[in-house]
Amino acid sequence: MGRHVLLIEDEPNITEAMRFILARDGWTVSSHADGATAVNAVSRAKPDVVVLDVMLPGRSGYDILRDLRANPDTEALPVMMLTARGQVRDRERAESFGVSHFMTKPFSNREVLDTLNSLLGP
């Protein structure tokens, strides 16, 4: 089965680090850095799982998540949110929009891999 992950992240260094980690674990990795066009990017790329930053240029991660959940094609798509704003309110907000997993930066590489693998299921 395919293990395709889409990284929606505007910080190039972080994107590069995750790409390296996930590729090494056998994932197919694509990335997108702009918030405004992120939903389209998801539709085009049809990933198995999405890693979504919150603070993106053009559009916030929350809005993108809400759109994804509103679309029948992507409403069940596993989405892991990553944010540098680790406050409780942010987590609650993400969960209310139907996030699959919420993770605070900085993260441990192992944790990212484990979470993504568990989101795909056995």
């Binding site: 910080e11 260094n13 972080i14 680090a17 995750m18 390296f20 980690i21 603070m55 944010t83 540098a84 704003r85 680790g86 406050q87 605070t104 930066k105 900085p106 993260f107 441990s108 590489n109 192992r110």
Partner: peptide, 21 residues
């Protein structure tokens, strides 16, 4: 505070991720 947190965590994220690599 949210801004500062973000501004501090972003470089730290890269640093930690690459350090672990």
């Amino acid at each position: 505070l949210g801004q500062i947190s973000h501004e501090l965590r972003t470089p730290m994220t890269s640093i930690r991720a690459f350090s672990e690599i």
